Simulated assay, not measured.
Amino acid sequence: MAVGLDDLQRDLGTLDRVVVAFSGGADSALLARVAHDTLGAGRVRVVTAVSPSLAEEQLADAEALATEWGLRWTTVSTTEMESAAYRVNDSDRCAHCKDALMEVLVPIAAADGATVLLGVNVDDLADHRPGQVAATARGARFPLADAGLTKADVRALSRSLGLRTWDKPAAACLASRVPYGTEVSVSVLSAVGSAEAALHLLGFADLRLRHYGDTARIEVPVERLGDVLDRREAVVEAVRSAGYGYVTLDLEGLRSGNLNLALKAD
């Protein structure tokens, strides 16, 4: 039995019905699949929140996964972009986003007599994640973390279960590419999403494009820095086609959540 699977199934088995927030990433995919297999399709609803901060590629793959696995899937629109507190993009941005998510998930769960579940793992608990506090306050539970699963455990367990998401690159919301203090807007998120999609087509699946006005900072794993330079012209063209005037490469490589370093500096 893979590490953590017993505990995860045991925890899920104590619940009657659940609503899983489903982005299609490795964490939420594992949670949705194990919940589906443990409780049965009729007791599990998976919901993908759609907003300008969700990349089109992610939405398409979430739908594909739901179809492949026979999940009871639906989408809902969230309205965080209507909130000035969210758009101002301070250190509590994630809390406003999760608040908007719970605003739509709680009524769905209430109608089903269900519990809202989020794909939060143990590693997530160590970073600056005010969204988790906001979600907990609205009644959400984190079964992966409760089962003691780290990100590495999630990937190992997913692989042992034959889930194609086991090695899917992490893909936080597009707003996470915008430094704190820079206003989040639909046009900014669209530019980031378009540039990343174009870079994906060039073969760079695992990356972040950080937005600094008309300057884009590309982060890829250190071992792929040379590949970016080898395809320099195509990379520059792909990013400029999204509206950026300057294209830079971060020599420190891909660092998930590195914009949170600015908070620690303060």
Rank of each mutant, 00 (worst) to 15 (best):
A2C: 04
P143G: 05
S53Y: 04
F142N: 03
L174E: 05
R159K: 15
A234F: 04
T115H: 12
L117D: 01
L189T: 07
C97L: 10
H96L: 12
Y246A: 13
V228F: 09
S83D: 15
V236S: 12
T136K: 11
L31A: 04
R33G: 00
L39A: 09
L31C: 05
D250W: 07
E183C: 03
V76C: 03
E80K: 06
V106Q: 09
R43F: 10
N258F: 10
R217Y: 12
D250K: 07
V184I: 15
G40H: 09
D167Y: 04
T48C: 06
G119N: 03
V34D: 00
L15F: 07
S83F: 10
T79H: 13
L161C: 06
P52W: 12
A152W: 01
G253W: 07
A2W: 08
M102P: 02
V106S: 11
T78E: 02
A60E: 14
D37E: 15
C94H: 11
A64P: 00
R72V: 09
D7C: 06
V236R: 13
A95W: 06
A195Y: 07
E56L: 11
A140Q: 03
R217W: 12
T48I: 05
V239Q: 05
L59R: 14
V104K: 14
A238N: 08
R43M: 06
A32G: 05
V34I: 13
V186L: 08
V18H: 04
A95N: 07
